[in-house]
Write a protein that binds this DNA or RNA. Sequence first.
DNA 1: CCCCTATGTGCATATATGTGCATAGAAACA
DNA 2: TGTTTCTATGCACATATATGCACATAGGGG
Lengths: 116, 116
Amino acid sequence: MRDFIRAVRAISDETRIRILKVLLQRECCVCEVMQALDIAQSRASRNLGILEGAGFIESRRDGLWIVYSINEQIVDGYAASLIEMLRNSLVNEQIILQDRERLSHAVRVGLRATGK
Amino acid sequence: MRDFIRAVRAISDETRIRILKVLLQRECCVCEVMQALDIAQSRASRNLGILEGAGFIESRRDGLWIVYSINEQIVDGYAASLIEMLRNSLVNEQIILQDRERLSHAVRVGLRATGK
DNA sequence: CCCCTATGTGCATATATGTGCATAGAAACA
DNA sequence: TGTTTCTATGCACATATATGCACATAGGGG
């Protein structure tokens, strides 16, 4: 019951839904997620942590960055069903399309180094 | 997005999960739900309302009672997928089995008339 | 070995959520 | 039409959740 609720709650937040939708496009580091969603870094990090704790995503280090990606090898567990459900949902949602657009321009480089 | 979140949030609460599990056994009036879960009447009523608003269940009047049941005819909508997921989940959960046991003894009669 | 960059986290705060209590509402039945 | 019975809801309150800000941490690269 606890795991079930943790999984469902994890996917019941708009920010985390948007993150999952982005990660369904391709793996991302934290800074790419914050660019895609146009949110603060701490917010991206925290919500990625929640999604990881619920089993939706996994992380690995790649040089300076920590790359998050959809946890594909889950067979049991509730996250698998929910991810599958999300895959077919919200396909024409405005904000999801916006995030996808921004994601396509996101670069794996700190904002400090972008010249801004 | 709003509907998606409403559906997922509706099923992310232990009380409502237990209610849905009970209704998957058979349709119930409010007083049967409160007996099965051993909760207050207002709590049962309120959570039934949330589940109805999210599209999981429907209600009809039957004499003195209002009977709630799983909304079976939903094809589109997110509730259908979530109900299907719940159907195969938590099958050995202690509290779910307790609720089912109490449900089998529940009667469609006000507590006031039980002699207590 | 030190510094710099990316990521994680403690704290304060605003908002949302769940619940009990008491009461209002609704509708069947006499 | 009045009464009884079941169900819904306003209110108060406790708890949970999400977020920004500032800072701590970690670990790669020079």
